[in-house]
Each structure stands twice: as C-alpha cells, then as structure tokens.
Amino acid sequence: MVLMNLQSTYIQRLRTFIVLLVASLNAFSSIAAELSTKEIDFFNQQLNRPAKVKFWYQSSENSCHAKMCLTPQQTPNRIAIISHGAFGSPREMNWLGYALASQGWVVAGVAHFGESWVYGTESIDPSTASRFWQRPQDVSFVIDSLSNDGLFNRSLALDKLIMVGHSSGGFTSLALAGATLESGKSEAYCRSDKANNDKGCQYSKKGRSKPLTQDMMRKIGLLQRQMQDPRIGGVIALDPALGHAVNEQSLAQIDVPTLVIGSVNNDFLPYITHAKYYADHIQRATLVGIEQGAGHFIYIDSCNADRKANGVPLCKDRDGVNRDVIQKQILVHIFGFIYKNGLG
C-alpha cells in the first residue's frame, strides 16, 4: 500500500510538472527578454583546434565584469552541452537552447571545426566526419573551459552535466558516456541491402578515401578509450547516428540515465538501426518514438532555406508535419526525463 501511494504521488507530481512545463512553453515569448545568447570563441592549443560556442542562459539585470552575467538565482549544477549534427551548427538549435535556459539551465552549444559552417564554408572538410573522436574531444575541452576566469560571474558545478546531441551529435553524446565504434561493422552494414535507405552511409563513403591501416586502427582504438568523460551525468540523444557502427558491448556498459528520441518514419536514418538499436542495448535508456510523419531534421530550428543533406531537405517537412508542435512535444519528454532522474 505504501508503495502504491508513493507511485501515485510521483505520478501526480510528474503530471503537475508537465502541465506547468507546457504552460511555460506556451508563455515562452513573454519571458524571452530575460534570456540571453552569446557566442564565444575558444581555442584548444593542445589539439590546435578552435571551438566556437553558443551559450543560452538567464542573464542578470545588473552588469558584471564577466563575459556573461548570470542571474543570482542561477543553480550552479544546471549545465547542458549541445552537439550539432553533421555539418550543422549550434545556431540551428535555438528551440532547445532557449527552452532549457528558460528553466534555469546554462547551455553551451559546441560548433565542431571541420564540419560546422559557422567557421566559414572554406573550412568544411568532408573527411572530418570519419574522425569521429574529435567531437568528444571538443566537448571535453569546452567543459574544461567553462571554469575559465572571467567567463561567468558565478562558479558552476561541472561534475554532472547533461549531454544533448542530434544525429552525429547524438553519437557524440553517447560516446562521451562510453559508446565506441566497432571495426568493420559500418562497412559491412553499408554494403548490405539493409542500408538501401540509410543516408548515413553516404558520409562514410565521402569521408574515407582509402582503407584504414592496422597502425591507424590501433591509434583510433586508443582515441576511443579517451572519448568517455566522467562528468557526463545524463544523455539525451535526438535521432542519433552511427547506430549501425557501434559496439554492442560498449552500450551495455553505459551507466548514466539516457533518453533516446527518434523519428519512426525516418527519411534519413532508419529508426530500427539507429535510435532503437541504441535504446535496446543501453540498460538505463528510455526510448521515445516520434511519429506524425516526422523526419530526421525536425530536431533543428524551423527554417525556410532550400538546403539539403544527402538529398533530404533540412527545412521542408512532409505534408502535414508541424515542426514547432512536435518540438514542444519533445520538450515535454526531455523535461520529464530530467525531472524523473533528478538531473540538475
């Protein structure tokens, strides 16, 4: 009876939280003036790589001597990192960055050099997609940089962050929690009939001009062991990529709360091979399948550009799909996951 009462209380609290969350999202435009965004350039001297970071946060009305003035009410342990999809940018993740910031999170969106267009189109290198270990390196460096003097006017707790990523960023998030790739698995899958509708295989064909040598495989193995970051306390993977290439045993060892959200009727990454595969093999994973005709790019901001990735439009959804409505539904799942697991 006590257990039933506790469950009933929890369910009631969760329902109340979701109602309040939806109300806050509907009132989002009225509080937008209290939110701020800023882009700051960092440079990883050890790896000779720039890191442009877009921040979303609640700003203080009072000036300060830091680059970003946080409100006195800022909770020090509400920190989230966002990793964008292949050849994308944090500038396309405002829907998520502002929503998290509106609930008191300091959010840092990492632009991965060599992939992100924010560094200039001349910097884009298709082969970067095959150097998957660089993305987790970027994130760990940015986490280190969050404690830089003069960045914030308040100290932040960096020992239990939430890692969020879309597509390749979804893999990046999971790699930081322990996921690794398995040699030869991607190549075998992409040669099979199962991969006929998998646009992800096109990146590996563009990014690698010759087979990997044994010495390169040894070095990659070492780099993979360094991808995990113990400061990641929870993962939210939005339609994650590279499910067809990930080692199953590495997923079984992930021990942080994980939310995997994927588009069921996917136009880019087959749901069974990617999102569902991840969730099926991570013990503490929650899987949410988004239907309603949603495709792979509903996880980026609404847009009007005529851009495509491997032939799939980034901005134009299928008929009848309302990206803004679906994103609000996704936010309910995200904040429900955060609340349920006591994150932040």
Score class of each variant (00 low, 15 high):
121 T>N: 13
166 H>T: 15
88 G>R: 10
148 N>P: 01
82 I>S: 00
93 M>V: 11
78 R>E: 01
134 Q>N: 14
176 L>K: 08
128 T>P: 01
101 A>I: 09
77 N>P: 10
139 V>T: 08
100 L>Y: 06
101 A>V: 07
85 G>Q: 04
89 S>H: 07
128 T>H: 06
163 M>H: 06
142 V>G: 00
142 V>T: 04
78 R>W: 06
82 I>Q: 02
165 G>E: 06
69 C>H: 02
173 S>L: 06
148 N>D: 14
104 G>R: 12
118 V>W: 06
121 T>Q: 10
105 W>I: 06
132 F>H: 04
135 R>A: 05
172 T>H: 01
128 T>L: 02
114 G>L: 05
145 S>T: 11
168 S>R: 07
173 S>N: 06
153 N>W: 12
121 T>G: 14
156 L>W: 05
160 K>F: 08
67 K>W: 09
111 A>I: 08
153 N>C: 10
154 R>V: 09
150 G>V: 12
122 E>A: 12
86 A>L: 12
160 K>W: 07
130 S>R: 05
151 L>N: 04
160 K>E: 07
113 F>A: 05
75 T>W: 03
102 S>R: 12
97 G>W: 04
126 P>I: 05
94 N>C: 11
105 W>A: 03
128 T>D: 02
80 A>Y: 07
163 M>N: 03
176 L>N: 02
158 L>F: 15
97 G>Y: 08
145 S>K: 09
171 F>R: 04
172 T>F: 04
73 Q>M: 11
117 W>N: 12
92 E>W: 09
94 N>S: 14
100 L>E: 09
133 W>G: 00
139 V>H: 03
99 A>G: 11
144 D>Q: 07
72 P>Q: 03
96 L>F: 15
67 K>P: 01
71 T>R: 13
172 T>M: 09
165 G>S: 14
132 F>W: 10
130 S>M: 05
83 S>G: 12
158 L>E: 07
114 G>W: 05
127 S>W: 14
119 Y>A: 13
69 C>K: 00
168 S>K: 15
115 E>N: 10
94 N>P: 07
158 L>S: 10
151 L>C: 04
101 A>W: 00
94 N>L: 14
133 W>R: 01
85 G>Y: 01
173 S>C: 09
132 F>S: 05
172 T>R: 01
78 R>Y: 06
149 D>Y: 14
121 T>A: 12
148 N>R: 14
136 P>Y: 02
96 L>W: 07
110 V>N: 00
115 E>R: 10
153 N>L: 15
110 V>W: 02
168 S>T: 13
159 D>K: 15
153 N>P: 14
76 P>E: 14
104 G>T: 10
128 T>Y: 01
